[in-house]
Nucleic acid binder design. Sequence first.
DNA 1: GGCCTACGTTCAGTTTCGTGACCCAGCGTT
DNA 2: AACGCTGGGTCACGAAACTGAACGTAGGCC
Lengths: 157, 157
Amino acid sequence: MQRTSYQASNCTIAATLQVLGEKWTLLIIRESFFGATRFEQFMTVLGCPRNLLSERLGKLVDEGILERSEYREPGSRARDEYRLTATGKELMPILMAFMQWGDRHRGPADGPPMLVQHVACGAPLELVLTCTEGHVVSSPDDGVIIPGPGALPAVPA
Amino acid sequence: MQRTSYQASNCTIAATLQVLGEKWTLLIIRESFFGATRFEQFMTVLGCPRNLLSERLGKLVDEGILERSEYREPGSRARDEYRLTATGKELMPILMAFMQWGDRHRGPADGPPMLVQHVACGAPLELVLTCTEGHVVSSPDDGVIIPGPGALPAVPA
DNA sequence: GGCCTACGTTCAGTTTCGTGACCCAGCGTT
DNA sequence: AACGCTGGGTCACGAAACTGAACGTAGGCC
């Protein structure tokens, strides 16, 4: 079998995994989409260790996925809150892909525990695989992976 | 802020993470889509520790994502190979979601290192967020997450 | 029989996680 | 001023996961 280097490390899947691949990270992002912004909110909902939460939030800020800003409840001192940046919001399809697969293969029989709704019309949103030429793509077998413009030159096997 | 239990653990994102969340797992699946089937193929391309590869392959078989079958090269003894099941192939959108985000935010400037091509027509395939009513969904802000039919009853905050 | 190959297993050593205790700034109270 | 409370962390240490390399093993080949 022919192996080319683009298949290994010059791969943006691995790059994304670098950012999201640690334990709790994707769940923190899920909670951000739900509207959590404060440390204690993440803590109580996720039940994850404080030190990890602290570390993950910091890392996500460094990566440009969350944004730290001050807020002040009346009668309290200023504290930090964390909100998704535009870059962070673009992670939505990743969450939805996880959700769709989980709903189909690991979900409760009585229907998905949550839905993503189109704010404009109330209908559910879905992630679909489409051909840029507009053809219907019915199964994953309709796709093959090929080297793109940024691929490294192939190395002989 | 109101918290309901479906936001925490009754969530198929977490269930999927249970299956795919360990190190190397998603990369093993990526290689499966590329066509790798044999232990040594995964090893040489991924460069991951042998014991982890062995363990991950076993787990993916148990989860119904890969399927083990025997093959025999002429002049060799029978060995195992691992192929994606139908369930496994449905993970394609997850890989593509990772790829699309990585291409945009962590990829090389000269274009994506790889593309997914429609076998029928050769055009690239894309993952798009759509409204089931057919409306155009331009940004992740167009979606909100709501409890679905399988949601657990809400618990008061 | 002895060697090679493809696949696994075992094992010491090192990171990463999880748990629980501790810290710290600032508000409101006495 | 001293005191305690609260949100938001940090620290230390045992447990689990990961890493890399050595060892096992079954069959085919010389």
